[in-house]
């Protein structure tokens, strides 16, 4: 059996965070005697990622996603737990490990602000010991995929947010990493740029057989890329499985909308599901998935229905419900 790309067991991270009261007295107290709180950012998280997988990491702000990514990349030390990434202990950061991974962060950039992208690539080529001809080939290949051939000689500060993010991806994947950690790679991008980034990541993964772990607040990213999701909330892992499974488990309902020939009272529909709207020529009710076919057939047979439609609850809504209840 192939060794996992990522293996995390009972992973935890506790931060000491200074707490300060507002106002002058609070400031003085904070200056003289600082009080700290222990914040458990990640709490006994265990999971495994096999090579080639694309895994979406979901969770609200402050859930512990980025902290987990930083432990996986070796930037911060875990407080407890076991961690193995590509056969290495990440926080030791051996060169052999660092050459195989990358971390892309939507809110931070590695490109040199005042110089063209090509200057940053030149540094990366030297750092990763990429031969000039090969560096030129990769630049051409990725720039073409990302459609940024024309902007490589412009100073980074002159680029739009979308162009900059694409250039960041180019710089981050220049050494052809096997394992990509992507923290909000489409943050703040318009829809076209988001689509382009997703397409590029998919192409990269197909060409180089890479493994991806990505966090995003845009469900479209997760839906388009990830076959599997990890849901983390307040530092704990709530769910590990495919996206359909999450919807299935957490939102076992479908919404049925009816256009009627004559008005129907809520009481007449009550037996079919949870009535959300009724009394006029339109009605909406939530029906359990397992009863859906039978209920639809019965509704069509019993009432004069002009039109009927069944809709999935939006993924955002499902995720929001998971987070608000804190369980799956």
């Amino acid at each position: 059996m192939e060794a996992p790309a990522v293996l995390a067991e009972e992973l935890s991270k506790v931060f000491l965070v200074a707490a300060k009261e507002p106002g002058l007295m609070g400031t003085l107290r904070h200056f003289v005697r600082r009080r700290y709180r222990r914040i458990k950012a990640v709490n006994n998280v265990s999971f495994e990622i096999t090579p080639g997988e694309i895994v979406g990491f979901l969770g609200p702000n402050g859930a512990g996603k980025t902290t987990t990514l930083k432990m996986l990349t070796g930037l911060i030390y875990p407080t407890s737990g076991e961690l193995e990434v590509l056969g290495h202990v990440p926080y030791r950061r051996p060169a052999a490990f660092l050459k195989q991974i990358t971390l892309v962060m939507g809110n931070k950039q590695q490109l040199i602000w005042d110089l063209p992208v090509l200057d940053s690539l030149r540094i990366n080529a030297a750092v990763y010991e990429i031969e000039p001809a090969e560096a030129r080939r990769r630049t051409r290949e990725f720039a073409e995929l990302l459609e940024i051939e024309d902007i490589l000689t412009q100073p980074v500060r002159k680029l739009s947010l979308g162009q900059r993010m694409k250039a960041e991806l180019l710089a981050s994947l220049f050494h052809l990493p096997r394992l990509l950690f992507l923290d909000e790679p489409t943050l703040g991008l318009d829809v076209n740029a988001q689509i382009a980034v997703r397409r590029f990541l998919r192409d990269y993964r197909e060409r180089y057989g890479a493994t991806l772990l990505l966090t995003s607040h845009y469900m479209a990213d997760i839906e388009a890329l990830a076959g599997r999701v990890l849901v983390i909330h307040r530092g704990s892992l709530l769910y590990d499985g495919d996206l359909e499974g999450l919807v299935e488990r957490f939102a076992p309902y479908r919404e049925v909308r009816l256009q009627l020939e004559r008005p129907l009272a809520a009481a007449e529909l009550a037996g079919y599901g949870e009535v959300e709207e009724a009394g006029g020529l339109r009605a909406r009710l939530l029906v359990e998935r397992r009863r859906l076919t039978a209920v639809v057939a019965e509704l069509l047979a019993r009432f004069a229905v002009r039109d009927l439609s069944v809709t999935e609850p939006p993924l955002e809504e499902v995720i929001a419900r998971v987070f608000s209840e804190g369980r799956v």
Binding site: T73, G74, R93, A95, T102, K108, Q109, Q110, V127, Y128
Partner: peptide, 13 residues
């Protein structure tokens, strides 16, 4: 301060 030391720590040098 701004957390960009991350990128340096991730380089194999």
């Amino acid at each position: 301060q701004d957390g960009t030391l991350d990128f340096v720590l991730l380089k194999p040098v």
